[in-house]
Design a protein around this nucleic acid. Sequence first.
DNA 1: CTTTCAGCCTGGGCGC
DNA 2: TGCGCCCAGGCTGAAA
Length: 270
Amino acid sequence: MPELPEVETVARQLDPLLAGRVIERLQVFDHRLDPGRPRGIRGRRVGRVFRAGKQVVIETAATGSVDRGPWLVCHLRMTGRLLWQEGRPRRPEHGRARLCVWQGAVDFVDPRRFGTLRWCRSEEEFAPPGLEPLDPGLSARRLGSSIAGSRQPIKIWLMRQDRLTGIGNIYASEILHEAGISPSRPAAGLDAAELRRLHRSVRTVLRRAIRHCGTTFSDFQGAQGVTGSYQQRLGVYGREGARCRRCRGGVIERVVQQQRSTFFCPECQR
DNA sequence: CTTTCAGCCTGGGCGC
DNA sequence: TGCGCCCAGGCTGAAA
């Protein structure tokens, strides 16, 4: 699945397409999804589309009123996509659900069927438990106090959604490479200077990836099949055996942590 | 409490 | 071509 930059990209692409459109209905083709059925959706409009953690949130609103909600919350997990179609929609392969709006539709496509879709009646229901990495108020100190006490390797810690929301397997490796920190270091063992580098890398890597519309693999495309370009800028992910772009001396290695691949440069990550 | 690990699904790529 | 195996961007819940 898409991680934070890919989810942000999808939300940014969908927002101008959907905002203000009258909602007609939500069709569910895969009944394992079971999003719930709030009353009175018909005739409401889409307010805005935004990201909450790794979720795409489609806010509904009453016409000409400050009355907001419910919210349609989609978690794309590994292979989910949201495809916008103007006019008369075609049913895409692996289409699991479709939100029909005025003169268009958004299809939730998910070959692997890990993704989820649910109606939430309050914003608290979809609020992620962890810190938001791009929150302007997130300081290195606050990041450090959240890390304090964890004996997990820092790479595993970075992917903990209950602590920091939005980082997955690709960006965890990328962030640690940028910060020059080895993925196997115990999280609580980082010193103050390393924490500052980690804090800065979390934000710069995610922002840079958003600027390039995320990383596109075969499973992920933006709202209109738009492909991100960040994969050309990846420092370590998927580059096993290649020369390190940071120190130009090391050769990228792959190790397995918690059954997931981690990529790093043994020369410049300590 | 913290941490690990199988399981959920399907499809693509690879070696034989 | 076909088959079996391994791999994949995430998360949950049970077990240690």
